[in-house]
Design a protein around this nucleic acid. Structure first.
Length: 352
RNA sequence: UGUUUCUCUCUCUU
């Protein structure tokens, strides 16, 4: 059971939930060992995360029939998935069901609901809930509760209110962590207040909270999007000098950023550099490259990247097709755009 | 005791 469970988890992490499901079936059919509650929970999580909710529901039914009552992990997995899908009413229903079945909702449950509210654009409700928790002795908010609400305000473009919460959280026994700073920096960047984000970057260092790769990526992106690409590049070089390794997101951010003002040669140079440093391009990277090439009407080179993308095992997605179609139409190559649409259909990609 | 909750990057003057 342990070995099967580990492999099932590995497949889920590798975004191969169908294979995980098949392995689960195989395990049950062979009959040497059978799934326990943890196996179910891991698989339900993997399926939910990859929008295979139908299969997840089947598993849940199967789980109950086998006599494994859903536990807090099962409930929290379902609630969090529903929240992420914006199904707040259903999430609350499951939370009630959880209570009714003698499984008291815990901090993970509350945090999932708070985050769901924030992502659905109801940061005020989430904040109210947070304040309610702060006053209660049963379940105090933790750093994740605060981070979610802060992110909710940032997402709504209300970064000053987010800052207010940030300033008050330490007094409630919850000092900010690196994610808190990253969220706020992101919020400032979204509001085009990149200098405030920079300020925060220095502030976190002063307070003994070391910036991580996300902190750098956030600032680099903010600088790029406000046409301060040279400063972004400078920060990137600073990153290389420190002991923080750039991630794929770093390169994708910078590639997208420089492609607006630098030459194609420079963009392709950075792309090669990225590979040289052992960072494998992902689908986003290819989309960025194809976009940059289409903008310059370098469709042959774009085609080359498209092929490389497929060779690397990445199916083109809606973004890829949109970029190609837009580029071709702008170059008045409407027939080619038409064929791209056909290819899209052939690959079972739904146009938007 | 291994499973559940928070942050960054790709379409943008569509």
């Amino acid at each position: 059971t342990t070995v099967y469970t580990i492999v099932i988890q590995g497949l889920c992490r590798a975004v191969r939930p169908i294979e995980a499901f098949e392995l689960f079936m195989q395990m049950e059919l062979e009959g040497h060992c059978s799934a326990d509650a943890m196996t179910y929970n891991i698989l339900i999580h993997g399926l939910c995360k990859n929008s295979e909710v139908g299969k997840a529901r089947l598993l849940l039914k199967d789980m109950i029939e086998k006599g494994y009552g859903p536990d807090k992990y099962t409930y929290n997995t379902l609630i969090s998935s529903l929240c992420k899908a914006g199904q707040m009413a259903e999430a609350n229903r499951i939370a009630d069901e959880m209570k009714a079945n003698g499984c008291p909702p815990d901090i993970v449950t509350w945090n999932s609901l708070i985050d769901g509210l924030c992502k659905a654009g109801h940061a005020d409700d989430a904040h109210k809930f947070l304040r309610h928790m702060t006053g209660s002795s049963t379940c105090s908010p933790d750093i994740i509760s605060y981070n979610s609400v802060i992110a909710g305000f940032c997402k709504a473009g209300r970064v000053d209110e987010a800052m207010k919460i940030f300033e008050g959280m330490t007094a409630w026994g919850c000092p900010p962590n690196v994610r808190t700073y990253n969220i706020l920096a992101w919020g400032f960047c979204q509001s085009f207040r990149v200098d405030d984000a920079r300020q925060l970057f220095h502030e976190m260092i002063e307070r003994g909270c070391d910036p991580d790769v996300v902190s750098y990526n956030t600032l680099i992106d903010g600088l790029c999007k406000t046409a301060r690409v040279d400063e972004a590049y400078e920060l990137f070089r600073g990153m290389l000098e420190s002991d923080i390794a750039p991630s794929i997101a770093t390169y994708n951010t910078l590639l997208a950023g420089i492609s607006k003002s630098y030459t194609l040669e420079e963009v392709e140079h950075l792309f090669k550099d990225m590979k040289k440093r052992g960072c494998k391009p992902d689908r986003g990277t290819y989309n960025i490259m194809i976009h940059a090439l289409c903008e310059e009407e370098e469709f042959v080179e774009g085609q080359r990247f498209l092929q490389a993308m497929i060779k690397d095992g990445y199916e083109p997605n809606v973004v890829t097709y949109n970029v190609l179609v837009r580029g071709l139409c702008q170059a008045l190559k409407v027939d080619d755009a038409y064929w791209i649409l056909q290819d899209m259909a052939a690959r079972n990609c739904i146009p938007d």
